[in-house]
């Protein structure tokens, strides 16, 4: 698994993040775009109408801000003051996974539309105070509770990785590992060709006879 996440054009995670619907208000009348608002059957979008639009669409339309302004993008509720107050008070108490599976990534995109730089600061501060908590969570390897709903997608993968390491090291220290298994890195390198070659030889041998 790739543990450092950088969004790119082919990143599945990035595609999933940009599927998220963001509330917007139309700035002007848009003809023939009525299908964007499922609740109305009109063919056109009127000015000042609220619509939920996927993030990828907004990012495309908003390419040059100021010149191509069709929609006024609202900040989703989860990045608004109520939650930011909770995050400020105790970031570890928030079940980020329940707010949004991709809290940080979505926040990163949303911060483009936030003129005060408020969302950017909020996700940064939240992430920093949660990392210590996440690290402690990794150390409790006996703790079998499902943390998936409490953690952001990236956090969850970090947690899996961290707890796996801790488990391995404590097993090693307690000498409970008896059989050495092939390391994951070696498996990924496909360096062990012997088994494959033997199988091929067996097939070739049976064909000769």
């Amino acid at each position: 698994m790739k543990r450092t996440y950088y969004p790119n054009y082919f990143s599945i995670d990035d595609i999933i993040v940009t599927q998220e619907k963001i509330p917007c208000i139309t700035e002007q009348e848009l003809s023939n775009l009525g299908f964007l608002d499922q609740s109305h059957s009109s063919t056109d979008l009127k000015a000042n109408q609220e619509v939920q639009l996927p993030l990828w669409y907004i990012l495309q339309v908003q390419k040059e801000r100021g010149r191509n302004q069709f929609y006024d993008v609202k900040i989703p509720n989860i990045y608004k003051s109520t939650y930011s107050e909770i995050c400020k008070a105790d970031a570890t108490a928030v079940d980020l996974g329940k707010l949004n599976k991709h809290f940080y990534e979505l926040g990163r995109y949303v911060s483009h539309f936030d003129r005060n730089g408020f969302v950017g600061r909020m996700i940064y501060e939240t992430c920093r105070s949660r990392m210590k908590y996440l690290k402690d969570l990794c150390n409790n390897i006996n703790n079998e509770q499902r943390n998936e709903s409490r953690l952001d997608h990236i956090e969850y993968h970090l947690f899996l990785e961290g707890s796996k390491t801790n488990k391995k090291f404590s097993e090693w220290l307690q000498e409970s590992t008896v059989n050495i298994k092939t390391s994951e890195m070696v498996v990924n390198h496909r360096k062990r060709k012997r088994a494959l070659m033997e199988a091929e030889n067996a097939i070739a041998g049976s064909q000769k006879t």
Binding site: V119, G120, M131, C138, K164
Partner: peptide
């Protein structure tokens, strides 16, 4: 090693976002 660099990467990335927008 499997945790720290990647966690710091995430923090650094969000810090850059934060700084850029401030």
């Amino acid at each position: 090693r499997s945790f720290l660099p990647y966690a710091s990467d995430l923090i650094a990335r969000l810090e850059r976002v934060c700084q850029q927008h401030t």
